[in-house]
Design a protein around this nucleic acid. Structure first.
Lengths: 207, 207, 207, 207
DNA sequence: GATGAATGAGTATTCATTCAT
DNA sequence: AATGAATGAATACTCATTCAT
């Protein structure tokens, strides 16, 4: 999904922008195949059809492009989820919708999954952008009185950990909608809903 | 905690055993400081006061010592937790006791924390020993009718993810008993207890 | 003879070609001094005035450069012999001319001798190019009815063994044209000529 | 053939002799399997059922045992050939008998073949013992007036080269009596016999 | 004599980064 | 802007040899 994502976004722009986009697309591709650690600069430039040294006209270091790619992907994922969720008002429904949407989106684009997953481990700073909406939805649920939990980095971290574990398992053992459903239940439970109400919400949203 | 753990265990034994223990202790130390990925063989031999080549009289490769260290630590942690939990019969109480004990133990020995955390990511096979008791306790809770969840790799993975995230946060931002308490609540909620009952159990156990 | 052989051939070409040639020349030099087995990559790069890592911009491994050098030398030797032998039609005369030419050429360039001799033992596939002409000349002699032998790998192997032994002896104990003459006689005898006729041919050709 | 050759020879002797013999047998075995270059001291001691360090109570270095083994094997081979050839008086017949016997013996004991072949390349000094009888037989033939060649190191070297090449080919491509027969013919031709007489002798001896 | 633990010099290979063109 | 050749630090692993017990 979305091979050449950056190049399309840079279509019609200046040469510098297009080369930059080519490098970012190449990075996505290479990271998807080999992971951040093993991704070589030369892999990226080769995939982008550029010479080795050209890389350093656009980035100061390997780390920089890794950060950039991770952030851009996170932002784009957030955008897409926002679009899916317009008009949904109920907190729990939003959480389930967002989680399902996120997991599906990321499993559809394994390159992006690799980037998001790796960025938490390989980069010091995981891209909060990807999960920003989640904090907002949880807050909304708390305000609506259906969630019973503190809203802070810890709760967010716990939730993200659940999502990450679920994605990793599906990458390893194959896609499984049932696991995504259970993930949603787990998140709602963790946020303070009873097991019964959590099931009901998930069934309403996912059918 | 337990610097020279292996050397103490090998005290009075033959030279081979003592050198082996020195290497394992050195590995723990180095992994604690630099992580599994960055840990160099020469770091370990230097820390153990040995020549470079001596390493290969005891291990075939870097991976081998990493596996060995991870497994030994996991086993030892399990042993200690078992000791703490003798006589506790109630499933939820066991889960809380085990989780708290595990988090405290591991935060007391940050080297061990690093090993356990890294081993999941760096080694192909993370040591199940460290979490085996957890599966047993969850099963017990389900059999006692207080947990409402499937017992499988997914549930275990979700639980372990919560614990890992909590430990990581405390390593980064400092020890915080309140977070450990909230972790326990989260786990019990995830396993199907209501928010209220989860709080009650945690309060009973942790005061 | 022909120190800097490759560099001369690459004169005026691009930088990549010139560096490649420098590496090949350096390899020839190092192999000549230490043999294929003991030749180190760093020896070659140092001799070429390059950094260690530069080697791997041109070759994947030590084996690769060894093969390349052996093949290039073999090809060049064949070219030079071809030139010497243009217009000679008689089979035995060709064999004697080729053998003498080969031995002289190789003793003039002891580095090349080392390469050709080592390549049979160290490389899995010795460069047939160096001896291809020999097979052709033997065939010609057989067709002319002056040789009485099967033309196959065995006969070729036997002949090459004689040449190799003669070269080795002259490298060890000093150049000796008489030995080369006797080598030619031996080859002709082996190919089925009587001692007398063999002597006559050799005398005609070598004086 | 002749596994434990040295141990049998040392039977009934002192402990030192028996341990030495065990090391020599182990060396034969290991060299046969891996070649001289790749043979490790520890391979030999392990195969001999001894500790690593024990080796140095018997040999000063790896080279020393290699030399010793090569020499002993060469001597033994000579002895056996001598036995086969008692009573044979005719020079050419002796050469054919010795060559055939040598090739057969060595192909029957591939370990020995490996040792003899490697010793020429890996050790500076190939064991002349193995070919001493050959010089004598050639001399005899010359004195009988059937060979027409100088008797010196060069002729011997040429002959040995032919034998080596023939053995190598049979090790690589499988035993082939026809090649051994052709080898004998080649040697006789090289020593100055006509093709016809060489064939006749070989047929008389080998049938 | 035997042991076997310890040694440490030796080397191919990778890859992010620089810089002259 | 682009090129791509050159760099060189960094590191796991081998094995003959030593020597204290």
């Amino acid at each position: 999904m979305d091979d050449r994502f950056f190049r399309e976004a840079a279509h019609g722009q200046g040469k510098r922008e297009r080369t930059l986009a080519a490098l970012l697309d190449a990075a996505v591709d290479v990271i998807g195949r080999k992971g951040m650690e093993a991704a070589k600069i030369s892999d990226m430039t080769t995939a982008a059809g550029l010479a080795n040294g050209t890389f350093y006209n656009y980035f100061q270091s390997k780390e920089e492009i890794l950060h950039k790619v991770a952030m851009e992907v996170a932002v784009e994922v957030s955008h897409r989820l926002d679009a899916q969720m317009a008009g949904i008002d109920d907190g729990p429904t939003r959480v389930v919708t967002a989680t399902t949407g996120f997991v599906d989106l990321v499993l559809d684009a394994p390159d992006w999954a690799a980037i998001l997953l790796d960025s938490a481990a390989y980069l010091s700073a995981p891209p909060e952008e990807a999960f920003h909406y989640l904090a907002a939805d949880i807050t909304r649920g708390v305000e609506q009185g259906v969630f019973d939990t503190k809203i802070d980095a810890f709760t967010l971290g716990q939730t993200v950990a659940l999502i990450g574990a679920a994605i990793r398992m599906q990458i390893r053992h194959g896609r499984d909608g049932e696991l995504t459903r259970r993930l949603c239940v787990n998140i709602l439970r963790l946020l303070g809903m009873t097991a019964r109400r959590a099931d009901k919400v998930v069934t309403q949203v996912l059918g």
